[in-house]
C-alpha cells in the first residue's frame, strides 16, 4: 500500500506569486495588455489566476511570452478590469497556475482553422503563435484565422501579434468598419463551403474557437454539419481554478479541470453549453459593449 502522498500532476504555483508589472499597454479605452516580470510555463488553452491586491482575483489566459516576461490582455468589463487600466510600471500583481487542459494539436493535422470573437482571441493567441513556430518550415501546413469583433477597435490582436496580418487571416466586424461586414460564424460557413470537395468531404482537420458562447455554439453546429473536428475554450466564473470550489461547473463537468477546452464529443453531453451569458456583461451591459 502506498502511504506516500499523492503527487500533483502538473508543476504549478498554487499560492499567488507577486511580481512586478513591467509594461501596461492601453490599446484603446476598452482593451489593455499587462506585462508581468518572470518566466512561466503554460500551454495554449491553459489559464492563470491573476490576483490584484485589494481588488480581486480572476482567470486570464496568457497572450504572449518573452524572455523573463509574459502578458495577458483584458477587455474592460467590471471593477477588476477597470483597475488594470490604472496600473503603473512597478506595481505588483500576483499570479498562480497554470490551470486547465490544453488545445489538442495532433501532429498529423495539416489544415487548421482558428475562429475568434472579440476578446476570445486572447485564448487563441498562444495557440496561434505556437502553431506558427512549429510549422514555419512545413510548406503544406495551412492555418487560417477568422477574427471578428463588433468594430475595428475590437480587433486589437492585430497590434498584439502583428504576424496575424497575412493572407491567411480574414477580419470581419459587425459594423463593417474593418474587413467584411459579417459575423465570424458567417465567415466560417463561407470558409467551410469553399474547402469542401465534390464528394462533400472537407480537408480541414480542426476548428479551434473562443468568443461569446452563443458564437461558439454556432461554430460547433457548423463543424458538426460539415463534419469537421472542433475545440472550444469555455469561460465560467472561477473561485479556485483547481477543482475544489465547484463554482465553474457545467453540467457534470468542471470548466477549470475538465476544460476549459472541450471537443465536439464532450460538448454533446453538456446541454448547458450555449446558455451562458457573462454575469458582468448582464450587470454592466450597454456602456462598455456599445463602444466595442
Amino acid at each position: 500500500m502506498n502511504d506516500g502522498h499523492i503527487k500533483k500532476k502538473l508543476p504549478r504555483q498554487d499560492i499567488p506569486l507577486t511580481t512586478k508589472v513591467v509594461e501596461v499597454i492601453k490599446h484603446n479605452e476598452c482593451f489593455v495588455t499587462v506585462w508581468l516580470e518572470g518566466d512561466i510555463k503554460i500551454k495554449p488553452g491553459q489559464f492563470i489566476m491573476v490576483w490584484f491586491p485589494n481588488v480581486e482575483e480572476k482567470p486570464f489566459t496568457v497572450t504572449c511570452i518573452k524572455e523573463n516576461k509574459f502578458s495577458f490582455t483584458a477587455l474592460k468589463r467590471g471593477p477588476f478590469t477597470e483597475a488594470l487600466f490604472e496600473l503603473k510600471v512597478g506595481d505588483l500583481l500576483g499570479w498562480r497556475g497554470p490551470y486547465g487542459n490544453t488545445f489538442n494539436l495532433d501532429k498529423n493535422f495539416k489544415n487548421v482553422c482558428l475562429v475568434a470573437g472579440g476578446i476570445g482571441m486572447a485564448a487563441l493567441s498562444l495557440l496561434y503563435q505556437n502553431i506558427k513556430n512549429r510549422t514555419i518550415n512545413q510548406v503544406n501546413f495551412k492555418m487560417n484565422l477568422l477574427y471578428g469583433a463588433k468594430n475595428c477597435n475590437g480587433l486589437i490582436f492585430k497590434d498584439i501579434i502583428p504576424e496575424i496580418c497575412n493572407n491567411n487571416t480574414c477580419f470581419c466586424t459587425d459594423d463593417g468598419s474593418e474587413g467584411d461586414k459579417l459575423f465570424s460564424t458567417e465567415l466560417l460557413e463561407k470558409y467551410l463551403n469553399e474547402n469542401q470537395n465534390e464528394e462533400g468531404d472537407n480537408n480541414i482537420d480542426v476548428v479551434y474557437t473562443c468568443g461569446p458562447e452563443i458564437m461558439m455554439k454556432k461554430v460547433v453546429e457548423l463543424c458538426e454539419q460539415y463534419n469537421v473536428g472542433c475545440e472550444v475554450s469555455l469561460e465560467r466564473y472561477m473561485g479556485c481554478g483547481f477543482g475544489i470550489c465547484g463554482g465553474c461547473s457545467i453540467n457534470h463537468k468542471l470548466v477549470c479541470m475538465d476544460g476549459p477546452v472541450f471537443n465536439l464529443e464532450e460538448l454533446k453531453n453538456l446541454p448547458d453549453f450555449g446558455n451562458h451569458i457573462c454575469k458582468c456583461k448582464e450587470e454592466k451591459n450597454e456602456s462598455f459593449t456599445k463602444k466595442l
Binding site: D14, I15, P16, M49, W51, E56, E57, K58, R96, M238, G239, C240, F242, I244, C245, G246, G247
Partner: peptide, 30 residues
C-alpha cells in the same frame, strides 16, 4: 455546501490557495 436561508455571494476572490504544507480557504459560505 452549507445552506443558509437567503442566497449568499460569499467573499470575493482570492478565496482559496495552497502552499507546501496546508490548504487555505475563506469562501464565506456562498
Amino acid at each position: 455546501k452549507s445552506i443558509s436561508l437567503k442566497p449568499r455571494k460569499g467573499h470575493k476572490n482570492p478565496i482559496m490557495f495552497c502552499d507546501d504544507h496546508g490548504f487555505m480557504n475563506a469562501v464565506g459560505l456562498s
